[in-house]
Every structure is written in C-alpha cells, then in structure tokens.
C-alpha cells in the first residue's frame, strides 16, 4: 500500500525527517509513537503534501505511485486521507456543501458521476449517526463553533464518506475525553478493511487500547528507531521514550 524509503524533509531549513523507512501492506494498522518534536506530525504533512514541508530526499509511493510530485488534492483523490490534529474552521461554507464538493471531487477522479443531492444527504446523515453527530452539524459552517470532540468526529465522518485507501490520523486522540475517544475508535474500527491501511500517529498508548495496531513504530529524531507489535506501546507507556532517544543518538554517532 505505502512504501516510504529513506524519506528526508525539512521545515524552514530545519531537518525534521532524516531517513525514514516504512512499509505498510493493505489492511494493516501502523501506530507511530514518539516524543514531542520527533517528526510525527511532519510525516503526515509531508505525505499529504502540505506547503512549507520540503522533501530533500527519499521516496514515498502509494500503491506504486510516487506521491511526492503530486498536488495535495491529487494525493487525496488517490485515496490518501489525513485526519487533522487541529481541524480548521471555514465559516459560511456549510459542512454538507463542503462534504459534497469533497466526495464529488474524489468520485470524479475515479471516473464516477457526482451523487445527486438527495442521495448524498441521505448518506451524510447516516454517517453522522455513526459518529454520534447531530444532523444539524451538516448545516453548520465547516467546524464552525464545533467543540474539540465534535471537530474530531467530523473528521472521522469525512473519512467514512471518502472511503480512502490510506488513512493517517494525526494525534486524533489529543484533547478527546474518553467517550469521544471511543466514538472515534469505533469509527476507525468500522472502516478496517483488507484493502485499507491506517497510520495512527499518537503520543499516548490510550488510543491503542481501542484501535489495536498490527505494528508500533517509535519515531525519534527523524527516524524510526524501534518497531514492534502492539506490546511495544505498553512498554513505551511504562518506560517512556528517553531510552530509545539515547539509543538513536548513540546509533547515529
């Protein structure tokens, strides 16, 4: 599904990713953990093509297609989805209008006709229900006045509507209470599919109690310094990251 080789990237002249390798097969869930400033969010931003993140080396391919030369919208249309850590508000643009534009764009890239308004509304309402958002949220401006939890659920709803191939969740658990966390996790679990992969970027092990990963990677100092199964997350919870960071630095020197 996703193959990342020796990926290097910088932000404002500062090297953040320093040779990252990752191979994700269809149907797998990979958790990326690590200390603050390790480059966790940068990975999601680089993969999705956010401006300001300069790739200085390496490659990233989604189903064999080179991602790094594509515009962000082209990557999205290929099936790459980023659930934002801090979803931004777009006042005046209704959630429904935004969602329809989004789904229509992705469908168009797949050679499909746009959905008619009635079918789309039906579909959107159904997805709202799944993430426990009231239908009135469809009429409101995108994320406008939403609480932190509502914004995250809105992100998951978008993910459900777009049915992406690769979902990247960037610290989706930050700022969520336990109920909202469960809703988000259920949403993600309902999308688990042999043809869909996930990257779950998180700081805490807590989310992984609900979304059980196949692999856990520790990102420190711009590289993956340790990979393991779900038990690695528990170990990290217990021991923290310092021992791995030290190891990484020693390894690098």
């Amino acid at each position: 599904m996703l193959t990342i080789k020796d990926l290097q990237a910088k932000v404002e002249d500062k090297d953040i990713l320093k040779g990252l390798n990752l191979d994700i097969k269809p149907g797998e869930i990979h958790a990326i953990m690590g200390p603050n400033g390790a480059g966790k969010s940068t990975l999601g931003n680089v993969l999705s093509g956010r401006e300001g993140y300069e790739v200085t080396g390496g490659s990233a391919e989604l189903e064999g297609k080179d991602l790094l030369d594509l515009d962000p919208e082209e990557r999205a249309r290929l099936g790459l989805f980023l659930a934002f850590q801090y979803p931004v508000e777009i006042p005046g643009v209704s959630n429904l209008e935004f969602l329809k534009a989004s789904v229509d764009s992705v469908r168009a890239a797949q050679g499909k006709e746009p959905l008619d308004s009635v079918s789309f509304l039906k579909l959107a309402r159904a997805k709202c229900k799944l993430v426990d958002l009231d239908q009135s949220f469809l009429k409101r401006g995108v994320n406008e006045g939403f609480s932190g939890g509502e914004k995250k659920r809105n992100e998951i709803m978008q993910m459900m509507l777009l049915e992406p191939k690769l979902c990247i969740l960037d610290e989706t658990d930050s700022g969520l209470d336990i109920d909202a966390l469960q809703v988000v996790a259920e949403g993600v679990n309902s999308l688990r599919d042999p043809n869909r992969s996930f990257i779950i970027v998180t700081h805490y092990q807590r989310l992984l109690d609900y979304i059980v990963p196949d692999f856990v990677h520790v990102l420190a100092n711009g590289k993956i310094v340790k990979s393991g199964g779900k038990e690695l997350a528990l170990e990290l919870e217990e021991k923290g990251y310092a021992w791995l960071e030290d190891a990484a630095e020693n390894g690098a020197s």
């Binding site: 999705s48 093509g49 956010r50 401006e51 515009d71 962000p72 919208e73 999205a76 249309r77 989805f81 980023l82 934002f84 979803p87 931004v88 508000e89 777009i90 643009v93 209008e97 935004f98 534009a101 989004s102 764009s105 992705v106 890239a109 995108v142 978008q158 777009l162």
Partner: peptide
C-alpha cells in the same frame, strides 16, 4: 483552510470560490 479543502480532494480554485 485551503489545505483542508485540498486534502479532501478539492482544488484551490474551487476551494476559494466556495
């Protein structure tokens, strides 16, 4: 805002117009 739209498959012109 523009990046959110792009990440959802909407090109920037359509996004600005919206």
């Amino acid at each position: 805002q523009l990046f959110l739209c792009q990440q959802r498959g909407i090109d920037t012109e359509k996004a600005v117009s919206m």
